[in-house]
């Protein structure tokens, strides 16, 4: 989808992207990195908003240097900040945006209603934007990027500030986007669980360089060498039995969970028999999986 080869971008003395090479596959891609690490510079270059100092970048098979106007028709952008007028209805605003992107009035109207249908906006689309809730405003922001039918949609913090319901709905919408209209998605966010739930691939940028590019499903399947357990009554007896069996290993105990190191399958057997002989409830037993947080912090720090 996006191919960058040895891209360098300098702002005066500051190097934002330093010999940056990446081949981003199609699908839903999460793009992560600390502020000022080069993430937004890369996105701006890929959107054709700024030019790189040197290097080559191809977006959707077209070279950016030559076709930066053409390419914009294939790209949609949902900015992070509020950028929508209050005194218009959702429909009016989107039709206008469609016309700005070069659609005629009737097509723009048709596209608007089609997209708002996908986003599950009901009659409220005829209301003024200022009356919208946070989740609805985000949907309008998303819709304005989609109205001209882009092949690649870039989303900047789409779930920021949304409450759990609205956030869930936004994530489902993004998933649907890729499935229904085959739009590729580039998602930049600070909420790493969003990447976990939505994205196929994740890339992490730090210090102007690509740190990792991995399949998300593979990444979070990785397990750590710690087993987390939660038990009910008689936990003291349970712990003392465990300690006898694990005298050389360190057991971490808090009032919320017990964590013991995973050695092999025997570890599970020991836990189960300890619970059986202590007659205590074994509410939870599981090897802790890697989360995006662990991976991110490992890569960035």
């Amino acid at each position: 989808m996006i191919e960058a080869k040895n891209v360098i971008k300098k702002y005066g003395q500051v190097t934002a992207l330093d010999d940056f090479t990446v081949d981003i596959p199609k699908g839903k891609i999460g793009i992560l990195g600390p502020n000022g690490a080069g993430k937004s510079t890369f996105v701006k270059i890929a959107l054709g908003l700024i030019e790189s100092t040197s290097g080559e970048i191809t977006v959707l098979g077209e070279n950016l240097d030559k076709n930066s106007i053409e390419i914009r028709k294939k790209i949609g952008y949902m900015p992070e900040h509020d950028c929508i007028p209050n005194k218009m209805t959702g429909v009016e605003f989107l039709i206008e945006m469609g016309q700005v992107s070069g659609l005629d009035y009737q097509t723009a109207t048709q596209r608007t209603h089609e997209i708002l249908g996908h986003l599950r906006m009901g009659e409220e689309k005829y209301r003024l934007i200022e009356e919208y809730s946070g989740g609805m405003r985000q949907k309008i922001k998303l819709a304005q990027g989609l109205v001209h039918g882009p092949e690649l949609m870039f989303l900047d913090e789409p779930t920021s500030g949304l409450d759990p319901n609205a956030r869930q709905e936004m994530l489902e919408t993004i998933n649907g986007l890729a499935e229904i209209s085959n739009t590729n998605v580039l998602l930049s966010t600070h909420i790493l669980q969003d990447v976990e739930t939505v994205c196929d691939y994740v890339i992490i940028i730090n210090n102007g360089k690509l740190q990792i590019k991995e399949n998300v499903k593979e990444l979070v399947k990785r397990q750590t060498d710690t087993i987390q357990i939660r038990v009910g009554e008689n936990s003291d007896e349970f712990i003392s039995i465990l300690k006898q069996n694990n005298n050389k290993r360190n057991i971490e105990i808090t009032d919320r969970w017990i964590r013991i190191p995973y050695k092999n399958e025997e570890s599970f057997k020991e836990i189960i028999s300890a619970a059986a002989s202590a007659k205590c409830q074994l509410y939870e037993m599981e090897r802790i999986a890697m989360t995006m947080d662990n991976i991110y912090l490992e890569v960035v720090n």
């Binding site: 028999s273 409830q281 074994l282 037993m285």
Partner: peptide, 24 residues
């Protein structure tokens, strides 16, 4: 659920089955 969580380890012991995950 309480009954389940109390008795399940014993059942596993008796049946000689080792599980690697019990979660809800």
């Amino acid at each position: 659920s309480e009954k389940f969580y109390t008795e399940f380890p014993q059942i596993l012991e008796d049946e000689k089955i080792i599980v690697e995950k019990i979660v809800s």
